[in-house]
């Protein structure tokens, strides 16, 4: 399973037969692994890495640091789940260090995000403070660089 996940993490779009070949398995065996991984939640989904800038579409992304106040009846997990329930929110992480939760969200423009923070996030009872930083440019995401493919300049030296 581990080898399967390693291959899937980088090559999820490859035909099943090719993933099976890399695993030295039959496609049926690999399909079964795939089902199992999805069922057991080892694979949560498949994301497409869109370069919106490149596509000429206006998209803004922000990272928001949150201080929250967990209470007996409502711990970090509950607060995080409430926040995760917003459609606008992409990622929610519990952090070590100087703040508690990191939330990332995407919107069409700065205003949309600012409004979301002001009207939806900040008013939540458990949120003490927020600090919003906007992403100006993406250089690398999920292991892929966004500044063009590296050129293969290897020569045939033999």
């Amino acid at each position: 399973m581990e080898e399967f996940l390693r291959i899937m993490e980088k090559n999820a779009r490859l035909p099943l037969e090719e993933i099976a070949a890399m695993l030295d398995q039959t496609p049926e065996e690999t399909a079964a692994l795939m089902d199992e991984a999805e069922e057991k939640g080892y694979i949560h989904g498949y994301e497409t890495l869109v370069d919106w800038d490149q596509a000429g579409v206006n998209r803004v992304e922000a990272m928001i640091e949150l201080h929250v106040s967990p209470r007996k009846s409502c711990g970090f997990d509950d607060i995080a789940q409430n926040i995760a329930a917003f459609n606008e929110v992409d990622n929610v992480y519990l952090m070590s260090g100087s703040y508690d939760l990191m939330v990332t969200i995407k919107g069409h423009n700065f205003q949309e995000i600012a409004l979301f923070v002001a009207q939806r996030l900040s008013p939540l009872d458990d949120v003490i403070s927020t600090a919003t930083s906007f992403v100006l440019k993406t250089y690398k995401r999920a292991g892929r660089t966004y500044f063009g493919e590296e050129i293969d300049d290897r020569e045939w030296n033999e």
């Binding site: 291959i7 037969e17 090719e18 070949a21 890399m22 695993l23 030295d24």
Partner: peptide
């Protein structure tokens, strides 16, 4: 090794 299996099979 992964790549080799892929290439040989195809």
């Amino acid at each position: 090794s992964r790549r080799k299996r892929l290439v040989v099979k195809r």
